[in-house]
């Protein structure tokens, strides 16, 4: 048998075996993985968010290492600063809120605020959890803030997240979150982390 023919037959058979046997990811999973790729490229997001029934607030979120208990021991997580002075810190086993007290704050409000701000690490974790569990991901075209987008419906354990990504690059630009007792919408940009910002954030979490 000619060499080239045998090599082609083996290569084609190997490819065909994979293609014929293994299930393929859904369009929603591929889009969500692309969105997660964007989120892993950045450590900061900035935008505007609004919990339903409240006023819109500027938001700025960074991913980094923070001292959550004032012990000096750093833990990895996300820190959010809102326009009204509220600061939210979410590290591995700790969620802290600093700032002006709010009346009857729903239990999940701080977490939802982090998600609405587009905190890259947190949103990426949410997407990972859905992908790892192989939960179905709804996909449809719509528009947000007069921009055409693709909406991804992600069902996490606590909430339903509608993540809006640009149709061409799949970069996440907005999010709607519906959690028990609290919901809202946020639009954001993923931006590079500048020197000094982490220090400023860390000073807010003594």
């Amino acid at each position: 048998m000619p060499t080239a023919l045998l090599v082609a037959v083996i290569g084609a058979a190997a490819w065909g075996l994979q293609a014929a046997t293994l299930p393929r990811p859904t369009r929603g999973q591929l889009l969500a993985a692309d969105a997660a790729r964007w989120l892993t490229l950045y450590r900061r997001s900035a935008g505007v968010e609004r919990l339903d029934g409240r006023r819109a607030l500027r938001s700025s979120c960074i991913q980094g290492w923070f001292p959550p208990y004032g012990t000096g021991q750093l833990e990895h997580g996300s820190a959010l600063e809102l326009g009204d002075g509220e600061r939210v810190l979410a590290v591995e086993h700790h969620l802290g809120v600093l700032g002006p007290p709010r009346m009857s704050e729903p239990r999940f409000a701080p977490l939802v605020e982090l998600e609405l701000a587009g905190c890259p690490h947190l949103l990426a974790m949410r997407i990972d959890a859905v992908l790892a569990a192989h939960r179905g991901i709804g996909v449809w075209r719509t528009s947000v803030l007069a921009r055409p987008v693709v909406a991804l419906s992600l069902h996490t354990r606590l909430s339903e997240i509608l993540l809006y990504v640009t149709p061409r690059t799949r970069e996440p630009i907005a999010v709607r979150v519906n959690a028990p007792g609290v919901s809202g919408f946020g639009s954001f940009r993923l931006v590079p982390l500048r020197e000094g910002i982490v220090d400023r954030f860390q000073q807010g979490f003594p």
């Binding site: 060499t3 080239a4 023919l5 045998l6 090599v7 082609a8 083996i10 084609a12 190997a14 994979q18």
Partner: peptide
């Protein structure tokens, strides 16, 4: 011929994975 094909067969199979 076939012997050279057998030598190159693992390379062909290996390449099929990134293609897939």
């Amino acid at each position: 011929g076939a012997a050279l094909g057998a030598v190159l067969a693992p390379v062909a199979a290996l390449v099929s994975f990134p293609l897939y």
